[in-house]
Design a protein around this nucleic acid. Structure first.
Lengths: 236, 236
DNA sequence: TCCATTTCGAGAGCAGTGCTCTCACTTAAG
DNA sequence: CTTAAGTGAGAGCACTGCTCTCGAAATGGA
């Protein structure tokens, strides 16, 4: 985050923002598939070739939108968690999960962009992982707080996690010790991983129409799942 | 399924199959985004306009591939279930879930086509629902068989499903009474719905790179999840 | 057997796309 | 003040989905 000095840099930052803004509008209107660089340029009254001064390719533009989407979702979830009573861990859990669903339903095309099929040929740019981790970090933080309060009782698994799985969980914990997961038992981390996939699996199914004609208004199924997930993690 | 009479009809069926075959090849090579009708036509040595005699649009071609993908996956899962000892319900569960993952890893682009972001504006064509239901039907059938054998003990939920959720589950059961779900309690159906979303959530995360650098070889996390899911449904 | 009807393939063409290149112009830095 | 870098516009390339027209071929009834 360097300060903006020259007028040229200021103009560049401004235009970069405007391009992303217009692209996000087009994305919300008709999805990533129909997002056209030329249309964005047209809406901004500039030549299509000029946009390439700011984003080297269409995929780079989409990647920028992906990072922004991760951050927007992360912000919503963190805010929802923060607004719940700190000691009511289940309320925090409900708030966080509900925030994910709300964001997804509010901006379905952005959700599809981020959690749907990877757009080009699958890219995992390093720049995204920090933003992408914000949601699971919130889930881990809630469980960590419950654990610190001595109120986390992970239900016994029929079969305990294997050595490699525990190792993976430990590495996750080591990477995130600064976000409130201190001392979180490994099986709790594994459980959070599984319910994390469940959360996005359900939301994805709802958004992409896989629940049509069965659990169509998915509100109750979602609420039920959230409780089941909280139980699986061991929240009181 | 009407019998093929004339040579013209035979040729038409043959070419339709060849187009789909070539399209599937292109899909596997570079994904739905890069699938080009013209390239398919070129590979088949025909004019691009001729393909439109067989598929009215690119999206219609993709829809045909979607139905085929659902059926291929359904077939694999049904076969895997059938190959397991009928009375070992957990083994059948493992086999079915594993078959889904195996198919997804074997044909990731087809998985993305079906369970990733809906491609254009997505219309959920009626023709797909029958094929799409095959996987959940297998899961329901396994639970139904366990229930019939008196070995299904759905764990008590912290909060029972609400009225509307039970109603949705009942309608699902009514629509599927002919596939072995007879007498399956509604809370079991709801549980299967939630673990169904969990199964595809996990596989989607694995395929789309959301587990990179954390649970990267996802084999153990998957195995653990499958057991957790079986527990949640109440399988012995 | 002949003939009208339909089916089909091919080619041209339209509007659109991502992206590259060149050329003038403006801004910033030495 | 001069040189270098940054910027915008336009033309152009290769490609896309899709439509239309036009001959050729297969089909089915008389």
């Amino acid at each position: 985050m360097s300060a903006i000095r020259t007028a040229r840099e200021r103009a560049r930052a401004e235009l970069t923002r405007e391009i992303k803004e217009e692209a996000r509008r087009a994305l919300a209107a008709s999805g990533a598939h129909d997002l056209s660089l030329r249309a964005v340029a047209r809406a901004l009254g500039m030549a299509s070739s000029a946009v390439y001064r700011y984003f080297p390719s269409r995929d780079e533009l989409l990647t920028a939108l992906i990072i922004d989407a991760y951050d927007a979702l992360g912000h919503d979830v963190e805010t929802a968690d923060g607004a719940a009573p700190p000691g009511d861990f289940r309320a925090r859990w409900r708030a966080a999960c509900g925030a994910v669903r709300d964001w997804a339903r509010r901006t379905p095309h952005e959700y599809a962009l981020v959690y749907g099929s990877p757009v080009p040929g699958y890219q995992a740019p390093e720049a995204t992982i920090g933003s992408a981790a914000r949601v699971p970090v919130v889930l881990l933080r809630i469980a960590g707080a419950a654990h610190a309060a001595g109120e986390l009782t992970v239900p016994a698994a029929a079969r305990p996690p294997g050595d490699r799985l525990v190792g993976q969980a430990r590495r996750v914990a080591e990477r995130l010790t600064d976000v409130g997961t201190l001392g979180l038992p490994y099986d709790a981390i594994v459980r959070i991983a599984t319910v994390w996939t469940q959360l996005f699996g359900l939301i994805g199914f709802e958004l992409f129409g896989h629940l049509a004609n069965t659990f169509d208004p998915a509100d109750e199924l979602f609420a039920y799942s959230v409780e089941q997930m909280a139980d699986a993690v061991g929240l009181p």
